[in-house]
Design a protein around this nucleic acid. Structure first.
Lengths: 105, 105
DNA sequence: ATGACATTTCGATATTTCGCGAAATGTAGT
DNA sequence: ACTACATTTCGCGAAATATCGAAATGTCAT
């Protein structure tokens, strides 16, 4: 995930996706449903201002998905993207915790 | 910083440095003194088990220093390394905060 | 079915990055 | 000054990465 966030384009994508809320609802069987989110094309427009080609954004989104940073869901003709909040929370926790044993120095 | 943490070797270095406390003391004029910490050679030994050459570790430490992730200080013949806790805290804060505007979706 | 649209895959290319080993630099002690 | 040691710099090759554009895939609407 750090590697994923390490690329400037992906960090911008990440930042953009965070400004769009990740709507979630519980289904009948208690399963989680993501309701909506930006599409690949929308990410491309908003993040790079069409500076980058769709296929490039698609590539980065795939990387981020494989890293577990985001979730991508099919919505008819589109693919909608959302930040994986649990994963990000874990990452924040890792950075936030203090690993130094007491009295180490 | 994300890019820095994205490399496996550097993440191991980071993790190792965090287990060694960053001792700090106030000097006579209120200036901050880092007291001690692992040397480059020690990092090389502990992190890679001598799998990697010193120059390689030096390269990574430089990257991490330029990224603002660690601080390196001259201590006579040695260079001692410590995590930049403020920077890491900021990073954790960035990941931890919720950027989605209320009622976005 | 056909056309329009969204996205992904593929191939090619340019750039970056990592790693090693040798040489250079710098410091401490004798 | 000389030696021993710690670290950095440099040159280079190998591998990974980012980007583009074209072609392929998949979906919706007519």
């Amino acid at each position: 995930m750090f590697k994923s966030l390490g690329d400037p384009t992906r960090l911008r994508i990440f930042s953009f996706l965070r400004t769009r809320c990740c709507a979630v609802a519980l289904g009948d069987q208690g399963n989680v449903h993501t309701l909506q989110g930006p599409t690949v094309g929308e990410v491309c427009c908003q993040v790079t201002g069409l500076e980058k080609i769709n296929s490039t954004i698609s590539f980065h989104l795939k990387e981020m998905r494989l890293a577990g940073l985001i979730e991508v869901e099919k919505r008819g003709k589109f693919m909608v993207c959302n930040v994986n909040r649990d994963a990000v929370a874990k990452l924040a926790k890792y950075l936030g915790e203090d690993e130094a044993p007491t009295g180490c120095c």
